[in-house]
Design a protein around this nucleic acid. Structure first.
Lengths: 221, 221
DNA sequence: ACCTGAACACCGTTCAAGT
DNA sequence: ACCTGAACACCGTTCAAGT
């Protein structure tokens, strides 16, 4: 209904050329809320502008383009995630906990995670948590390229599990969904294994196991 | 220049209502070529139709919508990747080689991999290779949920490295690129480690190391 | 059965014109 | 300096009309 271009909304006409008090931060904050509420696809310039009660081009006065907006949203979320203490007795355990925290908080805010991931900005999203991870790695005795390599291997493992966990199975036609594929495959696979592959996996548990294996491999006991 | 809508292309007018001999497979094959040549973003219905020399709605007679097109492209690529033998002496080594093959072929066809990944269809892309991996896992003595879990852990690890390897750093503003972030961070991190984090990593080598660690963890010697 | 032009409802982005 | 409506060049998708 708000589509009747015939009569221009009177308040909008009044506002023409006059300050709205809108700041860059407000736009980014509103975008973050919009994504969390309605998913990454809902973040369009027009919808965001409507949400803010301004004209679409107004956003472009404060922010260069959509890519910049997305990176600001991701960065904002990144700083919000940063405020957590790492606990644990052994150095290994603390590294594991720091890594695990990246996983849980990414899952908790899955819409933002998907957004970051679609835009190729997963590393921006996790940067602060990664810094915490690196500090624990150094505390565990790893420095320089050893610490960098370990941190990257751990990050990689988490991101992979996230991609699988957050993918949208409903996008594929039914025949091409994992369970259908394993049911139809003619590879020489035991029925028991085939059945196990068909059932959805507990990625939270799987990620925990994989993470333990990687941490144990890179961090001395 | 081919944009002059004033005079309709005479051959297009002649073709109106008459068979073009276009098949579903041709469309999918052309889409695959288009993506490999011009990247995932180039796959629009209009551009594909132009490439095929038909009107855009023609595609919709053969294929329901863009999602279905993408899944067919991914599936076609998946079958093409399937024709490789796994070598290696020990069972562990054969598992590793099968896993490694998923990585190398995904990197080789990075445009299709990115497309699959954006559409949340990475598991469709790797399905045949995954089946080969599962067979090696069974040969190594794993069955049922053990085999499924190991295969998923391995897949997850590969996908994670792929996401990092194929992400487009140029999409982020310079300040938010990994090296800039590590240069600017005020976390208590040794200069040596900080420098190591700033330099781009050899993800091919990193993926190999991580993969070895995971395979060794899940597959008995 | 198969293909077309035209149209609909969306995008991101730009720009002259307002205050 | 900040905000607007209108417009441009794109999308995916639908549909009546052609053969």
């Amino acid at each position: 209904m708000a589509k009747t271009a015939a009569l221009p909304a009177p308040d909008a006409a009044d506002r023409a050329g006059r300050r709205t008090g809108l700041e860059r931060e407000d736009i980014v904050a509103a975008a973050l809320v919009l994504v969390e509420r309605a998913g990454p696809a809902a973040l369009t310039m027009r919808r965001l502008a409507t949400e803010l009660g301004v004209g679409t081009p107004t956003i472009y006065w404060h922010i260069a383009n959509r890519d910049e907006l997305v990176s600001e949203v991701v960065r904002l979320q990144s700083t919000r995630l940063a405020e957590t203490k790492v606990t644990g007795k052994t150095a290994r355990e603390r590294v594991y906990r720091a890594a695990r925290h990246i996983w849980t908080s990414s899952i908790e805010h899955r819409s933002i995670t998907s957004l970051a991931h679609q835009a190729g900005m997963s590393s921006l999203l996790t940067h602060h948590l990664e810094a915490a991870l690196v500090m624990e790695l150094e505390a565990a005795g790893l420095v320089g390229s050893d610490a960098a390599e370990a941190s990257r291997a751990i990050l990689t493992t988490i991101v992979g599990a996230l991609v699988i966990a957050l993918r949208d199975v409903s996008a594929s036609p039914p025949d091409y969904r994992p369970d259908a594929l394993w049911a139809a495959t003619n590879a020489a696979i035991t029925p028991a294994t085939r059945n196990a592959l068909r059932t959805a996996s507990d990625l939270d548990a799987l990620s925990a196991v994989t993470l333990h294996a990687i941490v144990d491999h890179f961090v001395p006991a």
